[in-house]
Design a protein around this nucleic acid. Sequence first.
DNA 1: TTTTCATTTTGGCAAGACCAATTTTGCCCC
DNA 2: GGGGCAAAATTGGTCTTGCCAAAATGAAAA
Lengths: 237, 237
Amino acid sequence: MAGDTTAPGMRLYRQVADRVARIIADEALKPGTRLPPERELAARLNVARSTLREAMIALEISGQVTIRTGSGIYVTEAAASAEDDLGPSPLELLDARELIEGEIAARAAMSIDANRLMAIEASIEAMAKAHEPDTHREADRAFHVGLAEATRIDPLVSIVDNLWSQMFSPIFERMGVLTGLFGDPDDTALRHHRLILDALAARDAELCRARMQAHLIDVRRVLLRASAFSSDTPGNS
Amino acid sequence: MAGDTTAPGMRLYRQVADRVARIIADEALKPGTRLPPERELAARLNVARSTLREAMIALEISGQVTIRTGSGIYVTEAAASAEDDLGPSPLELLDARELIEGEIAARAAMSIDANRLMAIEASIEAMAKAHEPDTHREADRAFHVGLAEATRIDPLVSIVDNLWSQMFSPIFERMGVLTGLFGDPDDTALRHHRLILDALAARDAELCRARMQAHLIDVRRVLLRASAFSSDTPGNS
DNA sequence: TTTTCATTTTGGCAAGACCAATTTTGCCCC
DNA sequence: GGGGCAAAATTGGTCTTGCCAAAATGAAAA
């Protein structure tokens, strides 16, 4: 995978933006460093200045560089670490999820309605029938997000959704954990989801919280076991 | 030129991007709608095509439009609601904060070290000495974020930080609530922060949670009182 | 009606020119 | 030598023109 970073079909300004971003990362340019002038960069990358310019605007919008009229283009803080940002460690994410989703489960038990209950049940069935990791994972996500939706507190939905997305950051993928979670022999996750659903239907907030926490602790167990096959420890950095 | 929406000092491509975004919002263009061709748009807005092009790339990067070579520029889903997206209602955000920050406080009580404790104490002192709303608000933020940091769970820091940022979305500002919070006669928030600090120093998790929740409930009270002066009710859409 | 293909439309990219903000340079004066 | 100031060089900002390639269009052919 040492090959090109960008597909040849992609528009030039994107390829250029990627290349410049890579230069920043590779040469470990400190925040505040000034990039070569547009004209020079354009010449070096064999593109017109207009194209180079579009690329820089793309980088500016995504917060990687700051353009100062008449002065130059400077790399920002975000850019320096953009490349090797592995995100929070999976275990840390699980810490956060245990703390938050436990409460969400409890709250959901009190505020859930029939429709949400059905939606969550549907996600469980979908997970049971899933033949591929992707489908399985998506159903899993639907369950946890659905629980957040049941609280009727929108910000919580975003938070759970975000935490979930981060679970599949590069480092996590590299550990091959998703397959580990999917390949769990008797699908403990599925069993746990069903247990939570029962508690939810019974409107038992305490039980919900406890079972959700137990579920996430088990995810941690699977996670640790899966990462044992990897040479790296899952600890951050 | 007609009354511009954006400051004249801003670079043209940004002004153009804003104007196009406003057109999309004003005319309520549905996702999938095709915008006029670049040449035509450029002419209508009195800018060069290259500039119009930079603006469209900015919009593309920020996910508001999709550009298809040889076909046209189409508005995406995100764009349609971008303009009138007031974000979650403040009360909803408080719901989320009560649920999450209560647990964070409890957890912080168990994992905080001397340094974090000092940092949090510093934020309280800063808030006490604050003469302007901005300074006061910043110290307030430092307190809540500091608490999250004390848990040593990074994702929680991001979450608290985000929730805090959203508290000051357009709708919230419009309600003049920040001044309301700042102008609180005897600064109840400051008193509450001190109480939480005490519980934190005593490593009393339960007390921490309770006091944090009490604090946020009080914030809600102030919030509601402040919004009473507004014609709009703070309820979500 | 369906298919094919030339035409038109639309975005993609390049090159050159000039303007405006900023930075640098060099000179004058103290 | 040091400080201040103005010209010059540097650098991003914008416009214009030109041509190419992909996609959509519509007429002609099957």
